[in-house]
Amino acid sequence: MYPAPFEYHRAASAQDAVALLGKYGDEAKLLAGGQSLLPLMKLRFAQPRHLIDVRRIQGLSGIREEKGMLVVGAATPYATLAASALVQAKLPMLSEAAAQIGDPQVRNMGTLGGSLAHADPAGDLPAVALALAAEIAALGPRGARTVHADDFFVELMTTALAPDELLTEVRFPLPPAGSGGAYEKYPNPASRYALVGVAAQLTVAGGKVTAARVATTGLATKPLRALAVEAALQGKAADAASLAAAAEKATDGLKLRAAAQMPDAYRRSLAVTFTARALTRAAKRAGG
């Protein structure tokens, strides 16, 4: 309830945020929606001396289409992603995943950048970023750089971002014609975080899967691509039988993170079920 003492700074710009990060070093934390950081601070699991608020930086939020990409500012709240007609039309998986996060308050505050930077092992959007092959842009004292989603999630709540870097925006490549994606989530009955979340993106041509990216969340210490599922789909018919057969491999090679009162076999079975559901809807959207 009562966090340790801290000082609050509101960053005026991305550069300002990076400068403040440089100034306060280890003692500083960026604050976006606060939906993960503030609970940790109230429990005193996190005790930053300086909070640098980036949520109101001009230009850090917003959604635009640019050079075959959908570009989303890091401070864009979930509610905006969920309601955006552009996102719904171009990347329905992203809006449907955002719409399933927490409750309305959480969706009004929580941000895309915060979700990816926090990298909660049960977070929804990290899986979506993987399936959509997102490019994650960061700004630091050494300048700007881009990290591919595949290289971004390093370990439990650890990303490729350096402590002095700010995540500025996320660029989602717009998939070619004949593509479709879907996000399927089975919420933990208490917390409603994903017990299992599956993001699937397919491209189908002539009835066959020509590209597939599938990622799961909630199961391991970080969101992971389901490479065995992707391989099983490649070049196969986008029909019910082959989608179901591919889904069977949802947890192949995956090491489950411990989850209280949830038997491993149950979680593996859920992963298969929800992968099948996500693939089915993705294939349908792909027109396959």
Binding site: A190, S191, Q261
Partner: peptide
């Protein structure tokens, strides 16, 4: 107590 918060206790 294993279900000591609303993360684990299903209201």
């Amino acid at each position: 107590l294993l279900t000591g918060s609303l993360m684990d206790y299903g209201l």
